[in-house]
Write a protein that binds this DNA or RNA. Sequence first.
DNA 1: ATTATATACTGACTTAAGTCATTGTCATTT
DNA 2: AAATGACAATGACTTAAGTCAGTATATAAT
Lengths: 229, 229
Amino acid sequence: MVEQSSKITLKEVPLFSELSVDDFRQITALSNLIKVKKNDFIFHEGDEFKGLFIVLKGSVKIYKISREGKEYILHFITPPNVFGDVPLFTGGDCPADVQALEDSILLFVPKNEFLNLLANNSKLSLKIMTGFAYRLKSLSVKAAELSLSEVINRLAGYLINEIEKSGTANMLEPHIKLSISIATLASYLGTISESISRAMKKLRDNKIIRMHGKTIFIEDFNKLKNLAR
Amino acid sequence: MVEQSSKITLKEVPLFSELSVDDFRQITALSNLIKVKKNDFIFHEGDEFKGLFIVLKGSVKIYKISREGKEYILHFITPPNVFGDVPLFTGGDCPADVQALEDSILLFVPKNEFLNLLANNSKLSLKIMTGFAYRLKSLSVKAAELSLSEVINRLAGYLINEIEKSGTANMLEPHIKLSISIATLASYLGTISESISRAMKKLRDNKIIRMHGKTIFIEDFNKLKNLAR
DNA sequence: ATTATATACTGACTTAAGTCATTGTCATTT
DNA sequence: AAATGACAATGACTTAAGTCAGTATATAAT
């Protein structure tokens, strides 16, 4: 998920690919590039909402934090995707925390600029709607899995997804490189690192996966799919 | 949540309130009214996606079901709201199950009709985006709560929300009428009816709520808020 | 009113997964 | 090569919440 970290130029941001020359000039004039280091916070839940961000390089996590400090990661955002767009429409303050998972470059677009752009650009609207729709779909699955599936099933689901993104799904031995720590993966799957360790061990013991460092080889894709439902 | 079941006419559907006379005529010509009885299924996960629905009267639940038959309710939809709009943008089949919670009247709009309408109507786009944004926000909270909070905290959060919707939040004793069964509420909160019964009992024992049949009176709003975080 | 059927509540028990503490394994620096 | 620090794995134990079974209380039907 974090591997595609090559830098993207503004013109390559799909969200902006259909803008008129004038609109594009306006956006570049009013937006600004923000460089953040690994673990830097972009904003916190409850902060005043000022505008949206596009990830050009690196990756960030969008997450909620409990009173006791436990975190649940809603989304990982990688280039060339957007975050901080929801409050454009709902109003209110920042609804979650955002932190950089690695050194990253973001483009910040002030909310009013973006809304003006949106009013006159149906293609931009369609992109926002489509992005929202995909996120709703993935969040729906995540929420349902938290309620209906056990840790090992959620882990299996995550691995299947990553395999599909990796393009190795049809190879003899599909594989992925884990680009995040076990603890981060645990936060994303709504559990703790120990439970992920134990679930991974079960998958290894049952000859469903094999691990070489951070690389996970899928030895039995069917069994894994079956676990993921 | 289900109490506002008075029937809404097509002109009163906010989604359509800004349509031109021509567009409105077109929509009414190509859409159709569907009457469903309590417990009727509107569609199932995996069914071919044909278009979206607007709830004019009654209410439906959007839910996912596990292999073992346990259900998790993602949303309740009441008038004048929409469902089945996500696949318009993501493509693919119906992503969840939908069942009527009571006798209901729905308006069905075929997907291509709606997409045509959308292409020439920026106000309609804005409404869709806003609806998506609110749903993303509420689903984010639901998912995070499943991971970070216990049953009693999620129940407290639900009660707070219902109280706020009821308009009795500032009365001496805020109250709501539970319009759904304990089992349905449990599915919405990602648990089972027994656990909701026990959580309710705890709230009663601690003098946070009092119950008269289906009506719940909040005796200590602050304590309830504190439980909900 | 009386029975029937749903829904809700309660207790006893089990289990998945969390907590805590310890040890093991890397990767980086000196 | 040794040492440091971060991350990962494992074992022992606890706990929230699930399962199962039985009872009580509604709501509806005769």
